[in-house]
Structures are given as structure tokens and as C-alpha cells.
């Protein structure tokens, strides 16, 4: 089971932790894992990505264009930016919430997340959009964004990992005081996913 996974977003959104959890879950199953991520200056509010590769016979930690099985977009525009990496019929999971770059705020130029979502709907056959703003509000923390998206990716079946395996990775990698909140986020996204799937089918028709 070889998998290429791209996580992308804006510096500070928690893509790195999500990629560590995926890797930890895969390691536990004795699947060889490699990953690469943005480190350095771009982390200061810039576009960031993590590449994760799982399976045998792989040499490089970086993914080639057109070969990602899954893209997990923490921000709609960033998901569009990484779309060339998606393989045909690959799965995209994306947060609907746009993050306005400082440059757009300054110049007053319009950047609309809706436009990005519309583009994804048109160009991606397996798309799962998540209203993370509502989810974070209901759960009561803006910091569960990464676990919500990771959960959605797990339930989509595209990662080849189970909720149980991700829960184990959370218990292994995070301090105990954060376990409850993150499990709550996983449960939340599991319950909501049925509705989202209805929505997704509508887009595809």
C-alpha cells in the first residue's frame, strides 16, 4: 500500500503535527514512512506544506507532481496551489475557511475562499470540504483544525489508516491534557461526515 500525501496550509496552522501523527500511525504498522516539510523563514505566515510517503520501494521524501493520493488543505487557496500534485481521481480534503494574507489586507485586493472552493469543486472529483469554522466554534477551540482535517482524511478512507490508529498516535505524541479535546474533534468530524458526503455527491453530479 503505497501512499503519497500532501498537507498544505499557512504557517502556524498545525500541518506539521498532523503529518507527524500520520507518520507515527504508519510506523506503528511497520510501514516505511518518509516525509518532508517547510522549515525556516516561510513558516512566518507563508505557504507551508508537508509531503508524506508511505510504503516500500520509495527513495525520496518529496512527492512528484500528479502522484499524490490525498491532499489535505488547511486553507482553500493553499489546496489549489498544491493541486498539480494530485493524481487523477485523488482525494482532496479542504477547510472552507480562507486566511487573508497580509498583502491582500494591505492592498485591499479581494481574495475569496469561495472562488477557490468553486475551482476545486469543478476540478476535483473526490472532494470533501469541511466547515472548520463552525466545527471549531462548536468544539470550542480554534486549535483542533488539524485534527478535524486529519479525521476527515481518515474517514474518507484515502489514508489507509483507521481512527483507532490515529487515536493511538495522538496518545503517543501529545500531552495527556490535549487528548480529550482532540478525540472530541475526531468524533465531531465522524458524525458530520455523512452530511458532508451528501453535499459532495451533489457537487459531482
Amino acid at each position: 500500500m503505497n501512499k503519497n500525501i500532501v498537507l498544505c496550509g499557512v504557517g502556524g496552522q498545525g500541518t506539521v503535527l498532523a503529518s507527524k501523527l500520520i507518520a507515527a500511525a504508519a510506523m506503528k504498522k511497520d510501514i516505511p514512512v518518509m516525509s518532508a516539510e517547510t522549515i525556516g523563514m516561510a513558516q512566518r505566515g507563508g505557504s507551508v506544506f508537508s509531503h508524506i510517503r508511505m510504503g516500500e520501494g520509495l527513495y525520496a521524501p518529496m512527492i512528484a507532481r500528479g502522484t499524490a493520493d490525498v491532499i489535505i488543505g488547511f486553507e482553500p487557496g493553499e489546496a489549489v496551489r498544491m493541486l498539480p500534485y494530485l493524481k487523477p481521481d485523488g482525494q482532496v480534503i479542504v477547510s472552507r475557511r480562507a486566511i487573508m494574507p497580509v498583502t491582500a489586507t494591505l492592498s485591499g485586493s479581494a481574495y475569496s475562499g469561495d472562488e477557490m472552493i468553486a475551482y476545486l469543486e469543478k476540478n476535483v472529483s473526490n472532494l470533501l470540504t469541511i466547515d472548520t469554522e463552525e466545527a471549531c466554534r462548536n468544539i470550542g477551540s480554534s486549535k483542533v483544525l488539524n485534527i478535524l482535517l486529519l479525521g476527515a482524511a481518515v474517514y474518507s478512507g484515502a489514508l489507509g489508516l483507521t481512527e483507532e490508529e490515529i487515536r493511538d498516535a495522538i496518545m503517543e505524541r501529545l500531552p495527556e491534557k490535549f487528548h480529550g479535546l482532540n478525540f472530541e474533534a475526531l468524533a465531531y468530524v465522524r458524525e458530520r461526515l455523512a452530511d458532508t458526503r451528501v453535499q459532495q455527491r451533489r457537487f459531482c453530479e
Partner: peptide, 13 residues
């Protein structure tokens, strides 16, 4: 609203 701190694990460079 923030109860957790799971989004900050990355390091600078």
C-alpha cells in the same frame, strides 16, 4: 476559546 495548543509544534529556521 482556545483550550488546546496542538497547532504549535513547528520550529523556526
Amino acid at each position: 476559546a482556545d483550550k488546546s495548543d496542538t497547532s504549535k509544534t513547528s520550529k523556526g529556521g
